[in-house]
């Protein structure tokens, strides 16, 4: 199987050779399978943003190799635009990058740079807007007069419109209300499902990570501290606390229940899993509301 993203012994050093030298990432190796949803967690300053920038060539590795869809990102600088088109990167608070006169024109900025024209351009803009839950009336308005949640959607649509094979999102739902959060993340999952692309989500919300990700990487001080499925990662609560992170609320509940000797398992990280476990404990009935 082809890997969507592959990092081989990547190290990133900022300000190398000056007194302010700082190693942001130390010897990172990872392989992300095509079509998977990967979560990236770590406390502030653990190197998440640097890792994200590596993926589409905004950051050059000090040593090591970064490959996207089995192609070395830094082999040919002329292919950089290809890389940027394949790896869509949505930064934190992306609404601050909006600049065009209409939402439509802003979403079209990325695909235009990638060489989309005419009908193809129109189609990709409209489908991206749909994935992000923006209707046609919003498309013709100025990006500076719509609501904060809509701005976020417009900015994310601007990246999705490039039809990236790998979509990297840095805190896509930060600062949104609960409904906005679910809507945006569900829309992104819909995009993933329909196009078979790979998703990498950076978030501080353990609930979101637990709900959507198949595989999780934990960064601590520039190194990979843990990796594994959601069940493996969240059953190691001590490790996460040590990395300055947390477990989902529901997992905390089960840790407390175990302390009191009421349940055995603590690898419960979503409400659904908790419901199933409770049902089986209560005698296998399935009428949970």
């Amino acid at each position: 199987m082809m890997h969507a993203v592959e990092l081989q012994n990547v190290t990133v050093v900022y300000g190398s050779g000056t007194p302010l030298e700082k190693t942001a990432l130390k010897d990172i190796s990872l392989k992300i399978e095509e079509g998977s949803v990967v979560g990236l967690i770590g406390h502030t300053g653990s190197g998440k943003s640097t890792l994200v920038k590596l993926l589409n060539g905004l950051q050059k590795p000090f040593s090591g190799k970064v490959s996207i869809l089995s192609e070395d990102v830094w082999k040919d600088p002329k292919r950089m635009r290809w890389v940027r088109g394949k790896v869509g990167l949505v930064f934190q608070y992306p609404e601050y990058q909006l600049f065009e006169e209409t939402v439509y024109a802003d979403i079209a900025f990325g695909p235009k740079n990638m060489g989309f024209t005419g009908e193809e351009l129109d189609k990709t803009v409209r489908s991206a807007a749909k994935f992000c839950g923006l209707d046609d009336s919003v498309l013709l308005r100025s990006p500076f007069e719509i609501s904060g949640g809509q701005k976020r959607r417009a900015a994310i649509a601007g990246v999705i419109a490039m039809n990236p094979k790998v979509l990297v999102l840095d805190e896509p739902a930060a600062g949104l209300d609960p409904r906005g959060r679910t809507n945006i993340l569900d829309g992104l999952m819909e995009y993933k499902k329909q196009t078979g692309s790979t998703m990498i989500i950076v978030s501080h919300s353990m609930e979101d990570i637990a709900k959507y990700c198949d595989y999780i990487y934990v960064l601590k001080d520039g190194s990979l501290m843990m990796e594994g499925s959601a069940a493996t990662i969240f059953s190691n609560a001590e490790g996460l606390f040590e990395a300055g992170l947390d477990v989902p609320q529901i997992t905390k509940l089960f840790i407390e229940l175990k302390k009191r000797g009421l349940v055995e398992r603590t690898d419960i990280y979503t409400i659904n899993k908790a419901r199933q476990l409770m049902n089986s404990l209560l005698g296998g009935e399935s009428d949970a509301k």
Binding site: K53, N56, L58, R81, R84, G85, G88, L89, F91, P94, Y96, Q97, F109, G110, N113, M114, G158, V159, M162
Partner: peptide, 16 residues
């Protein structure tokens, strides 16, 4: 700092 951030974001959208 802000300029740096915006530049990265637009570069990610293929700006040259």
């Amino acid at each position: 700092e802000e300029t740096d951030k915006i530049m990265s974001a637009q570069k990610a959208r293929g700006a040259d």
